[in-house]
């Protein structure tokens, strides 16, 4: 099987600028998401994710401009997320040139949004992001609003519903692993991957190159997303791909 496991850098964008620091000293504007996206694309990143973390209306317009510029300048697929609550938001992002959108809280609040996106634009544009936390009773509970509001939905049950409603992919972030840099949540990831017919993107926990290998093998993930290890230059995408290839994993080099 030659389908490549995907490596996806995630860029947080606020008021048109990337938030997290970067080690790319040779960039003219290190904070420009378009420049950074191009740089990652040249390093052979497989896709990009741009998350709008701006709340204001003005910031929203700025983000749309960023999406437009990325579409013009970057020749690999990219996803946008953050603040997508209804079909008109999806329409706006796709019109600006995004290939896919990622929805999270809005999908839990109104699951029909998934059906609507799949019906109007096709499943391939709809990524449902799930933030979940392992709790004392041994179950993974889904959270809203960037992990601030707990719901009664459990990971596998919600994942199944999301796939049934026509999502194209699931982006799963373990709140227990996110930011800890001790590896991805491979146990629930492999459960999701076995149970669902759609691709699963692992997110949260990348600390070293072996973590990526482990999520592709043990976690059965189809893609892995990370932010800080790439932004701070701790892991170069080119080196990561070389390493994964040596470890026998199918990657695009």
């Amino acid at each position: 099987m030659s389908l490549a496991k995907r490596i996806i850098p995630c860029l947080d964008v606020k008021d048109g600028q990337t938030v997290k620091g970067t080690n790319f000293v040779n960039l003219r504007q290190a904070g420009d998401p378009v420049e950074l996206g191009k740089k990652y694309s040249e390093e052979n990143a497989d896709e990009l994710v741009f998350l709008d973390i701006t709340a204001s209306h003005e910031g929203r317009k700025t983000f749309t401009d960023v999406v437009r510029r990325v579409a013009a300048e970057v020749s690999i697929p990219f996803t946008v997320g953050g603040g997508i609550n209804e079909l008109s938001d999806v329409d706006c992002m796709l019109n600006a040139g995004a290939d896919k959108v990622s929805i999270n809280s809005a999908a839990i609040r109104r699951p029909e949004l998934i059906d609507e996106i799949a019906l109007n634009f096709g499943s391939q544009v709809c990524i449902v992001a799930i933030d979940a936390k392992l709790e004392a009773d041994g179950k993974w509970y889904c959270y809203l609003n960037g992990g601030r509001i707990r719901t009664d939905r459990t990971l596998l049950e919600w994942g199944k519903e999301v796939a049934d409603r026509g999502a194209g992919e699931i982006l799963f972030t373990s709140m227990n692993h996110d930011g800890v840099k001790q590896g991805f949540a491979n146990e629930p990831l492999s459960l999701l991957s076995d149970a669902l017919p759609i691709p699963i993107i692992a997110s949260g926990g990348a600390g070293c190159m072996a973590d990526f290998r482990d999520t592709f093998i043990q976690g059965k993930s189809d893609a892995a997303l990370a932010a800080s290890v790439f932004h701070y230059g701790e892991i170069k995408i080119a080196d990561l791909k070389k390493y994964l290839k040596q470890e026998g994993i199918s990657v695009r080099i």
């Binding site: 030659s2 389908l3 490549a4 995907r6 497989d46 499943s123 391939q124 194209g168 992919e169 076995d194 017919p197 759609i198 691709p199 189809d222 893609a223 695009r252």
Partner: peptide, 15 residues
């Protein structure tokens, strides 16, 4: 898909 390891759609980079 004859086995569960193949996801559909065929999505991503292939040769």
């Amino acid at each position: 898909a004859p086995e569960h390891s193949f996801k559909i759609p065929h999505m991503g980079w292939d040769t």
